[in-house]
Design a protein around this nucleic acid. Structure first.
Lengths: 123, 123
DNA sequence: TTATTAATCAACCATATGGTTGAATATATA
DNA sequence: TATATATTCAACCATATGGTTGATTAATAA
C-alpha cells in the first residue's frame, strides 16, 4: 500500500533527526568548506565544547560526518551521501508540491488577471 | 560565513523533526493517495488513535498537512510544499554527494573495465 | 617531568517526545 | 431522546534530547 519508500526507515529516522537541529545544520554548513577539528568547529558557538561534541556524535551516527583521529585531534569531514536518501524520499512528494504550485500559479493568475470578474465557486 | 541557507531555521527544525519519525512518514505516504479522515488513517497502526492524533498535530505544525473540519470528522490533506524547503536545503550539499558518486563511478569503472589489464591513470 | 591542550566520559538537570488511559466535547444516528 | 462515533484534552509515564559542569584520558609542548 502507498508504494514502498525503499530506503531503510531506521536510517531515515537518524538522518532527519540529525538535520532537525539548527546547530547541527550549522556544523554541516561549516564542513562544506573542508575538514575541521572539533575545537575549531566549536569556536563559533556559545555552547560548551561538550555540547558540540555530542552534536557531532549525532551527525556521525547519521553517517553525515566521519572523523579521522590523529593524535589528540579529531578531524571531522562531511559525508553528504546519506542526504541522498532524504532527497530520494522527498522526491516521492515532488509531484504534490509542483501540482500545488501549478494550481497556486493558476490561482494567482486568475486572481490578478481580471480582478474578480466572475466568482469561481469550484467544481 | 558558510553562505547563508536562507530558509527559516525554526521552520526547518519543525519540518525535519516531523519527518524523523517512521509513523509520521507513513501517515504522509498514506495521504499521497488523497485526503483521509483521522480514524481512517489510524486504522493501519497498532498504536492508539490518540497517538496518531498527536502525530498528525506534529505534521500540521510543520505545515505538512492541513485539515478541514466537517462536523465531527477531520479531513486531513497532504501539503507537501514545506518539503521544498528541505529540498532546497539539501541541494546545498548536492555537489558533495555527486562528487563522491563520480569518484565512486570512476573507481568502479576502473576496477571492472579491463580487470587490471593495464593501469589507465588518465589524470 | 610537568603543564597544557584536545577531546571524551559521566553524572546531572530541565524539557521534549512518544506512548498510554480515561475523560470530555461535539456531532450523528437509532 | 438516548446512544454511538469522531476527535481532542488532560494527566501520566518512561525514555530521549540538549544542555551543563567536573573528571578523565591521551597527546603535545615547556
Amino acid at each position: 500500500m502507498t508504494q514502498a519508500i525503499s530506503v531503510n526507515e531506521q536510517q531515515l529516522d537518524l538522518l532527519f533527526h540529525a538535520l532537525s537541529n539548527q546547530t547541527r545544520r550549522a556544523l554541516l554548513a561549516q564542513l562544506r568548506s573542508g575538514p575541521r577539528i572539533v575545537t575549531d568547529l566549536a569556536r563559533s558557538y556559545k555552547m560548551s565544547l561538550n555540547a558540540i561534541s555530542k552534536h557531532l556524535l549525532v551527525l556521525e551516527k547519521a553517517g553525515l560526518i566521519d572523523r579521522k583521529i590523529e593524535g589528540r585531534i579529531h578531524i571531522c569531514q562531511l559525508q553528504a551521501e546519506p542526504m541522498m536518501s532524504a532527497e530520494k524520499w522527498l522526491q516521492n512528494y515532488q509531484e504534490f508540491w509542483s501540482n500545488n504550485l501549478d494550481s497556486f500559479a493558476e490561482y494567482v493568475e486568475q486572481k490578478y488577471s481580471d480582478e474578480s470578474k466572475d466568482k469561481d465557486e469550484k467544481s
